[in-house]
Simulated scan of single mutants.
Amino acid sequence: MSVEKLYIFDLDGTLYEGTDHFDYYAKRLALDVKEDNLESFWRDYEKSKNADHILAIGKAYDVAEDAVLTVDPMTLRVVEAHNWDGSAWTSEKVEQVYDRDIEFDFEKIVAIGDGWWLPFACAKHYGVENCYKRYVETKEYMVTDEFQLDPIPGLRDFLLRLKDQTEIVLMTNSDADDVGRLFKELDLEGVFPKVITSAKKPSLTDHYFNELKNEYNVAPSDVVSVGDNFINEIAPALLQEMKAVYISAHGNPVDHNNLVQVNRITDWVENFKF
């Protein structure tokens, strides 16, 4: 198969908006926080959401070291490290502990690329061992009548028009059951001809990008990655000389000719580029 252009979309935080589910996740995690730490847990979580804490979207968190890391997204090298209270590590300690590119594994070192990871890091700091079960509970809650997940107006029609002109693929860390439920909720059933679930981004992002480029026989410059997590979807695309659309209201970590940043996907739909 050979196509003129290929668009690779993320799902969570990209094709739907809102942050209430992050707060629900925090509430579920709080059930596992010791009572003596609850007030501090909520204080730090709220501060991190408001960019008033060393923990913030765009950082990384090392569970074992209980350290908040500033990572160069293009090289995956640790530039700075801070303790939870905001005190900085010496450059010598940073070089000693992080003497190679870091690897994100969803458990020991995580990229705080979106709002899912703020409550996770806060819970880990305050001693919660198993966060995954609360994540599953949150995903289940998101497809109940109690939770309103509204389709983005015009998005389905936009994606269908794009599909008529070229190829579109969905690649997400969510599992197949979650994706099926979310597609139904978001009125996106039947839109994507190819869906990659449980993608384990960023660990396997390069692998899937290479597979897709080969499958569709398309040059890197004709592939566009669309997502809200810079380390998961954007930096790997730029490093492969692909184009990228970064869906985020937070600061842009790099200036790149192949990169467009918008606050919401509707902004990109209305002012389409790439």
Rank of each mutant, 00 (worst) to 15 (best):
I231M: 15
L239H: 10
V245P: 05
Q148F: 05
K273N: 13
L170T: 02
L118I: 15
Y246A: 11
Y25D: 02
I265S: 10
R161K: 15
D85L: 05
A219P: 02
G154L: 10
C131K: 07
V223A: 08
F230Y: 09
S221R: 12
D72R: 00
E185G: 00
Y61F: 15
E146D: 13
D66S: 13
K47S: 14
N37Q: 13
V3Y: 05
H125G: 03
A235E: 06
L238W: 08
T14H: 08
G86D: 06
V71S: 05
S198Y: 05
K200G: 06
E270A: 15
N210S: 09
G227N: 07
A111I: 10
I196Y: 15
E215Y: 07
Y135H: 10
V169M: 00
D62M: 04
E4I: 04
E137A: 12
V110Y: 01
D10C: 08
G113S: 15
D99I: 05
L160H: 07
D101P: 14
G227K: 06
L11C: 10
Y25R: 04
I168N: 00
D101W: 05
M74T: 12
G154T: 07
M171H: 04
A81Q: 06
G227M: 08
K133P: 09
Y208C: 02
E95Q: 13
F209N: 12
D62Y: 08
Y132V: 15
D10T: 04
I112R: 11
E233T: 12
V218C: 02
E35V: 11
S203R: 13
T172K: 00
D72G: 08
P236M: 12
A123T: 07
L188S: 10
K47M: 15
D52A: 14
V71M: 04
A51Y: 06
T14E: 07
V223H: 04
G127T: 09
G113V: 10
V218A: 05
E137V: 06
D66Y: 05
Q240M: 13
K163Q: 12
L162G: 03
L182F: 13
H207V: 14
K47Q: 15
E185D: 02
D44G: 08
R134W: 11
F192E: 01
K34H: 14
T266D: 11
H256K: 03
L29C: 03
K273F: 03
E39V: 14
V226W: 04
M1N: 11
Y208L: 01
K200E: 12
P193F: 01
K273H: 12
E167C: 01
L11F: 12
R43Y: 15
F9M: 09
I152D: 09
D10A: 06
G154K: 00
C122I: 09
I231G: 00
D105I: 06
E17S: 15
P153V: 07
S40L: 10
G251F: 01
R161S: 14
K273W: 09
F192V: 04
V71N: 08
E107Q: 14
F192A: 03
V218H: 02
A235V: 06
V191H: 01
R161M: 13
E92K: 12
C122P: 09
M1T: 11
V179F: 04
E270H: 13
A244L: 09
N83A: 04
K139P: 02
V195S: 07
V71A: 03
D175L: 00
T138M: 02
Y141L: 05
E129T: 12
A30F: 13
K47W: 08
E46A: 09
W117L: 10
T172F: 04
S221W: 01
